[in-house]
Design a protein around this nucleic acid. Structure first.
Lengths: 201, 201
DNA sequence: TTCGTCATGTAATGGGTTACATGATTAC
DNA sequence: GTAATCATGTAACCCATTACATGACGAA
């Protein structure tokens, strides 16, 4: 996740760690802020893997001459970025990952963008249905706080779905003023064995 | 976090792991779902620490007699729960932790409830201001997707703050139909050195 | 007899955090 | 000269995840 965010930012222009973190906070600040304790190790890892190069801009050039390491994206790094932008990644990071991916939609192909937006929406719709049925089942025999939390959670998910729907419509309108059948992300054919949908006890 | 959720649920009634997870998903499903891979180890840890006892309800009683381990909260477990409900915990879990805490507000003292709600709100307000200033600074020179993400993020945070404000008002009204000065959570006196507020380069 | 759900668990891994340590530079 | 910001890093730890493995029960 951090990896994707770093590569994405570096694809715009070379930067040093400290500024990277500032930019990261500016763009994703509403959702998550990374700490230096993960950023610097991440940069070293990327360097070791050959995705970025590190130029120490300490001694030479510039007015101030503050010691700082400027990282630049390599050709392999660009490939890696494209790879990460397309991938699905583990389910656990879904929420955070979507934000990061969305932030770099400018560097993402239109078809991938649509696939990501639709995939995200369908997963949220699934989640929404689960919360809804849970609410329907447990309503009345829950204390008011638990109920309010579920209500609020449901509302948040619904909002998110509406937002995505608007975005998808905009994307579609831009992509083809006249067109035919759009592709959709692979929907799971097997019923998910999550076990929360039926009667609890 | 899981620890708190488990203790909280068990404080209502003894349960086995599988059902625990179902309930957890029902209550917090909109925000997060835990996996068995963390639940069972957590239960063992709690057992080792003496916060819960495990009764194997396999052979005896019941109709079916399916092998299952029923966990029961001990007196120490109750203490631990109260402790966790009051604590602040590390900043990184803030978002998720708040949800869990809120879910167990029914078992939380009114003053602690208010403290948690106000603390949460002030942290979100801080976050909101940072996002706002970031938006104000970078607007115009960002691509539309990044901008839209920030806009959406800001809106989400604002919604959350409004929700909390309503809750706080309700709490206050219930607590004292006539009253005086309310306490407030310790506000940081030192300016936070986050470095994202000023001009980015 | 097979599929779905109930039910419990382990090992390896992952990704990030906190706390700490250090030092140069800028603004007052 | 001192406080805040810029700037880079390390080590110990935390919490949860994925993938895997196992088995019994109920319904079709």
């Amino acid at each position: 996740m951090l990896e994707l965010a770093v590569l994405g930012l570096l694809s715009e222009s070379p930067m040093h760690g400290y500024e990277l973190r500032k930019r990261l906070s500016a763009v994703l600040g509403a959702f998550h802020r990374f700490s230096y304790g993960s950023l610097y190790p991440c940069l070293r890892k990327l360097q070791a893997e050959g995705y970025v190069t590190a130029d120490d801009a300490g001694a030479a050039s510039r007015i101030g001459g503050r010691s700082r390491v400027v990282y630049t994206l390599t050709a392999e790094g660009k490939e890696r970025l494209a790879e990460l932008l397309g991938e699905g990644g583990p389910a656990s990071w879904e929420d955070e990952m979507f934000g990061v991916r969305f932030a770099f939609f400018g560097k993402t192909d239109a078809d991938v963008r649509l696939r990501i937006l639709e995939g995200r929406r369908s997963r949220l719709e699934e989640r929404r249905e689960k919360v809804r049925s849970a609410l329907a089942r447990t309503r009345e025999r829950l204390d008011s706080y638990t109920l309010e939390l579920q209500r609020h959670g449901l509302e948040s998910v619904e909002r998110e779905v509406r937002w995505l729907t608007e975005l998808i419509e905009t994307e579609r309108a831009q992509a083809r003023p006249t067109a035919t059948a759009p592709p959709s992300e692979q929907a799971p054919t097997t019923q998910d064995p999550d076990g929360e949908v039926r009667e609890a006890r």
